[in-house]
Design a protein around this nucleic acid. Structure first.
Lengths: 357, 357
DNA sequence: TGGTGAAATGCAAGCGCTTACATCATAACT
DNA sequence: AGTTATGATGTAAGCGCTTGCATTTCACCA
């Protein structure tokens, strides 16, 4: 009996209970394979010693860690935080724990994080978006780590994904904007490099324009990082153009909130002078004045379903199917009809200018 | 040479490089103990085979997982998300990975999560607030898992903590409110059970009242969960009182944002009819109209410093010192002087009534 | 050229657990 | 009562890695 205070092992429990280690192990892992009386003896020994199985030893044998890794761009954006929260809750229900890392939207950083989580023994990985060096997928494949891509949906991609159709969603919103008479539309987009969602959102807007006989290339696009301040700056830039857009569609709600604030600072009425739209429908969209017209995305549902699908993949109950979620338009006050007498000048041929800042 | 595609082990690398496993291990862990030529041979074998050390085996021996656990109430509140983000970034720099769980503000859930993370081999734990069953601390002590408490500062507590003085911070804010002539103050607090921060914030307000010769017990306190909707409902309740408060101080910015929205819906002018304050200074506080007067908390700094202190503790370079951070008042438009002709009636003796819903 | 010490490498013993297989006890048959 | 199934428990072989100690190598010196 080692009385020197130290972490007890299976062996200690076995000794105090007067059984073999195998029996203790069975008590813990498949209690029905052990008879009631011994089980009680063992359990009270466990209790008495305050025994907790050694994780390393367990996974060394089990070849599983019951740990799932998630790498998201940042927890600071409410959409990821919320999705991750739901993801974690669902994981917990299934007996898994969440390992988290963030990439700050930087591909090299993400790659490093992927390798770290894999070497940490993650049984499966949740990644955001498809855009990624193919060699990374090969690596993951070799390591036999299942991957689920979230926040986007692409049935034809090599990896299973769960999410929504970014392109179609914003196209629907754009149609709404166009129906209100807007023809001068500008975009404040997130950085598109390594971000398929951002690109798809731009494409969706272009789709709508084309479908309505407008030149998709006529839009002014400002690319900036997802940040309230940056959104404001981008908006300011757009409003300083000679030909002001009558509607500014933003890549997400955070950018839109920045735009809204800037509009207010410039004394511009929204939607009187200019309409503003967002994407995501986070809390911010409801709190802001005027309320933000945006695309509602079921983040919680996505997190939850991502967890169950990924766990299924890890447990080989699924080879990974792609799941498409529905989005819906959330029309609020920030979108209104175009005002003919607005500050917009009447130029008909907006320049073909795309800025990649 | 096992050509059957499977995850390579140290042994495989040793064989292909023609050395012993010990040498390979040394190449990976202390490269300077191996001569250049063999190291190259080994490294190219590692490369060729795509070898990644087995996590379980490594930690079984090392008795360390280089993993830190954090249990926070929820990632949905931006303050935790932001702090956690900084925490994770700093951890990564030091070679640690973050294991995350959330308790949804529920003590039993938190306890379960603590045990889970410990059994998952977390080398150290970040917990929010001190309020916790002492047996849990004993357990952690027995398991030899260092714990750092965050989001609060208490030099005299049994556990080291990093954070700010909730009580003094809000007391300063309250003084500001009192200076503007308010005497009828109400509080919308978070649930205080198991939440020392929430309690301290109430106490801080009471301190200020007492210091200014007002009866601390005169305040109407509504307790509700941290949620925009709930904040609105609580505010609504307060505004329906016969003796309306002229200032409503909220436990955090989320509650305050709800209050603000409700005020708007009721057609109440803020701060003309009623002043509203928050706590945390999250993004929301800047975006809302009118801008929210609140207490600025350095969440990122807290996350960062928590990470370095906790790592020090894990590496036994510190026994855990408490760190106090400074907060500052962030005065914005939602706080204004009390208007004598406001809707507040002139009753002088507010009822001694405290509600714990 | 033989001797020496330091540096490089190999050997092998675990780390704490799970599990296939062997053994033993018990209850249920003929 | 003797023989079997059947279930409960024990034995011991790893899982893949690190590391103390033993052995080998080699540069350097007398």
């Amino acid at each position: 009996m080692a009385d020197i205070r130290s972490i007890p092992t299976l062996d200690d429990v076995a000794k105090t209970a007067g059984v073999s280690t195998a029996t203790v192990s069975r008590c813990l892992n498949s209690p029905d394979r052990v008879v009631e009386s011994t089980r009680q003896r063992v359990m009270s020994a466990v209790e008495k010693l305050g025994y907790t199985p050694n994780f390393g030893a367990r996974i060394l044998v089990a070849k599983r860690t019951f740990t799932i890794g998630a790498i998201i761009p940042t927890m600071e954006n409410a959409i990821f935080a919320r999705g991750l929260q739901a993801f974690q809750e669902e994981l917990r229900k299934k007996g898994y724990t969440l390992l988290v890392a963030s990439s700050a939207y930087r591909p090299e950083m993400e790659e490093e994080q992927i390798r770290t989580l894999v070497s940490r023994g993650a049984d499966g990985l949740l990644l955001i978006g498809h855009d990624r060096d193919p060699s990374l997928y090969e690596y993951l494949d070799r390591q036999e780590v299942p991957v689920l891509v979230a926040w986007t949906y692409a049935a034809d991609a090599s990896q299973p994904s769960i999410g929504f159709d970014n392109r179609a969603s914003i196209r629907a919103l754009t149609q709404e904007v166009l129906n209100l008479g807007h023809t001068q539309i500008a975009i404040i987009s997130g950085i598109t490099k390594g971000n398929d969602r951002a690109r798809q959102r731009i494409e969706g807007i272009e789709d709508a324009l084309a479908a309505n006989g407008l030149d998709p290339k006529s839009m002014h696009i400002v690319e900036t990082s997802y940040d309230i301040e940056r959104g404001g700056q981008a908006f300011d830039k757009l409003m300083s153009l000679e030909k002001r857009p009558t509607a500014v569609m933003c890549g997400n709600d955070v950018l839109a909130a920045g735009a809204l604030r800037c509009a207010r600072e410039r004394g511009l009425d929204v939607p009187g002078d200019v309409s503003i739209t967002g994407f995501d429908d986070i809390e911010l969209a409801k709190v802001v004045i005027p309320g933000l017209t945006t695309v509602h995305v079921p983040h919680r549902e996505m997190g939850r379903k991502a967890a169950s699908e990924l766990v299924k993949m890890v447990e080989k109950k699924s080879v990974g199917k792609s799941i498409k979620l529905q989005t819906s338009l959330q029309i609020r006050e920030s979108l209104g009809p175009v005002m003919p007498q607005g500050p917009t000048d009447t130029g008909t041929g907006p320049e073909d200018f795309r800025e990649d800042s």
